[in-house]
């Protein structure tokens, strides 16, 4: 069973819709620690502010079981958008510590929109550059494009964790993977066939 973790942040229905579209039958949106405990795979979605996300995760009472599943049971886990940022140690967007599952932190885009003419949030369709091989990238061809909406991005402490980067002002990490823990900065569920490929890979190959 794949559990889409419901902690009150983001458009969970669209992830479930896409999983159904690619033929996944056992997926479930849940905030129950028991169901998270039983999950074969976890998706941590999220739209919104970092501290609100961490607060809600704590309030839902899921932190303990999530840490157990991800760090001890090594359950394949995919963080999406804010979900990718929450798995880092910290964010410039908030004061609360992150989940700290990967050696990374989250920072704001480091350019001045007035000088560069680049707008924040980074919103729209952009490309990814593969940095190394990984399950999420199987059968993905160069030129794949994804829908992004974000003002902050992840910086990895360990370069080997960077699966793909995207250029917006400079190259930032758009897909991260450390062992069973993965994150994508874009919204695969809104990224057409390219996004379907990401979820298919997560479901079938991790």
């Amino acid at each position: 069973m794949i559990v889409i973790v419901d902690y009150g942040m983001g458009n969970l229905g669209s992830i479930l819709n896409m999983l159904k579209k690619i033929g996944v039958t056992g997926a479930k949106i849940s905030s129950s620690p028991d169901e998270v405990e039983q999950a074969d795979k976890l998706i941590l979605p999220g739209v919104g502010a970092f501290d609100t996300g961490m607060k809600r995760l704590a309030e839902t009472g899921l932190l303990e079981v999530l840490n157990e599943k991800v760090l001890k049971s090594k359950t394949p886990t995919l963080g999406v958008c804010l979900g990718m940022q929450l798995i880092t140690k910290s964010s410039e967007e908030g004061q609360l510590p992150g989940l700290g599952w990967i050696d990374a932190r989250t920072i704001r885009f480091q350019f001045d929109p007035r000088q560069t003419g680049l707008k924040i949030p980074h919103m729209g369709w952009n490309f990814i550059e593969f940095q190394r091989e990984g399950a999420l990238l199987m059968d993905m061809y160069p030129g794949s494009r994804f829908y992004f909406v974000h003002s902050y991005h992840v910086v990895c402490g360990n370069a080997a964790d960077v699966l793909a980067t995207t250029n917006y002002g400079y190259d930032f990490v758009s897909i991260v993977q450390h062992e069973n823990i993965m994150g994508v900065q874009f919204h695969p569920e809104k990224s057409h066939k390219f996004g379907m490929r990401i979820y298919k890979n997560f479901v079938e190959n991790t």
């Binding site: 229905g13 669209s14 896409m18 159904k20 579209k21 569920e189």
Partner: peptide, 8 residues
């Protein structure tokens, strides 16, 4: 629409 159309 949300269940069939996977763009924003």
């Amino acid at each position: 629409v949300a269940s069939q159309v996977f763009i924003p």
